[in-house]
Design a protein around this nucleic acid. Structure first.
Lengths: 262, 262
DNA sequence: AATTAAATTTCGCCT
DNA sequence: AGGCGAAGTTTAATT
């Protein structure tokens, strides 16, 4: 296993030693943390200017960059990774770090005049990240546990291409009727109802069987219930959290098998 | 001025001293940085699990929290600030940090079993942040420099309510025709064209004068040019960057005066 | 409080 | 490479 962990720390360094430290660390594709007083200029899709102040700056191995202020979940300035090039230099007693990328063409320039803490790392991180109950996960939950939607429901396919777009889940109910299911992980809007209605028409054009349309979501938006009645569609409550629970109870191997045969 | 800057650093601390350090720093509303091996569990609007690995974790003064992996601009886990409560405790030789908030009810639990660097700060940051060339700024740019849109254009109002929605800019051209302008800061879509078309109809219903519709954007989406021709509308190239430049050249005082009389 | 529109949205998937 | 839609989207503005 290659070297990893904390590789170097500078406490209250001067600008010159910081430049040497940072330029080497970035060249070596390490993660660099810099806390200090800086100003930031961004030009690209828009343009922004951040006056001097103390911030946390992170330079990652993929070229991505984050500038964080003392409050707020979102970075005040940033640069996505990928084709971003980062380099640093000394200019008149200050440290200037430039990050530039093309497509879209944009650049972030950070100028430090005082540093409080600078560190570099190689983060060893192979841990899996799994997210449950996205819209896709809700589809899967209905497939592996159809009673979440309705008793006796038997799914046939999912993400099936029908002309106007995609049907989330397609199946049969206990009486043998075709069922088209549109799943939303948030409050379903009128657009969702109209979308489902278009699907239904496309399906009905290809069969003489009775076709039911079910909008499955945790909630219904304003006036959508009325619209569903008008369109001859049904609403079914579907809770993202219960979908997540249903998925957790299924071993991933079984889930993989299910989707292989689906 | 109150105490600020770097308040404490721990290099490769054990879990116990980290818990003491972190709990005190969070209580004092300081910014805390922790780099170490951890796992993360999130439950709330969705649910996620992050297996152990080395990450950068930031706890901010407002309760917000970020977990960053070695690559990628976005945090793998996070918590917005506001009503978030953060606390930490020792559990079986590991450090557990919990962040909980209501509305929406969600929680992030981070478990550290090894730390590489821990630090706390008070970030002194009063520097202004200004962003140029948002869609609103593009409207302003056209108002203070109408020739950005077209020679002889004279703006009358902006964000004027017309029935189907809002008109971005409303004015007259050099021949005295009414001009309705819809501004988009990105590639204009068909929807933008239809939106403008609806505006135009609403305006025409209230006047006998000739009414021109201009869609101003940096670019046109697929087939939108054809749609504009069909709808009898015009396209005008409008560059966000040039709008930003135009705004920079206008002193903020003059801009304020302009909008007061507008 | 709820709905809509924008975001330097990002990110994925499909055409 | 471009377009469409989802996101633990977030955020701000407006009804």
């Amino acid at each position: 296993m290659s070297q990893h962990g904390l590789l170097g720390v500078l406490v209250s360094p001067n600008v010159k030693e910081t430049q040497l430290f940072v330029s080497e660390a970035i060249m070596q594709r390490r993660t660099v943390l810099a806390i200090g007083r800086c100003s930031v200029h961004y030009v690209g899709r828009a343009a922004s200017k951040l006056e001097p102040g103390e911030r946390i700056v992170i330079f990652k191995a993929d070229g991505s960059l984050l500038v964080h202020r003392s409050v707020g979940y979102e970075p005040v300035n940033w640069m996505p990774g990928g084709d971003t090039l980062v380099n640093s230099r000394l200019v008149d007693e200050v440290l200037e770090v430039r990050a530039i990328r093309k497509r879209p063409v944009e650049s972030v320039v950070i100028v430090f005049d005082r540093l409080q803490l600078v560190a570099s790392f190689v983060l060893e991180d192979s841990g899996d990240f799994s997210l449950y109950a996205s819209e896709l996960d809700m589809q899967k939950a209905v497939l592996v546990k159809p009673e979440l939607l309705e008793n006796g429901f038997r799914p046939i396919t999912f993400e099936k291409k029908v002309e106007p777009g995609f049907v989330d889940v397609f199946g049969e109910d206990k009486d043998g009727n075709l069922v088209v299911v549109e799943i939303k992980r948030k409050t379903a809007s009128k657009e969702a109802a109209l979308q489902l209605s278009r699907y239904i028409e496309a399906v009905r054009a290809r069969t003489s069987r009775r076709v039911r349309g079910v909008l499955a979501a945790p909630d219904l938006g304003k006036d959508v219930q009325r619209m569903l009645v008008t369109l001859g569609l049904e609403f079914r409550h579907l809770d993202p959290h219960r979908c997540a629970e249903a998925l957790v109870r299924v071993e991933s191997t079984k889930l993989i098998d299910f989707f292989k045969k689906a």
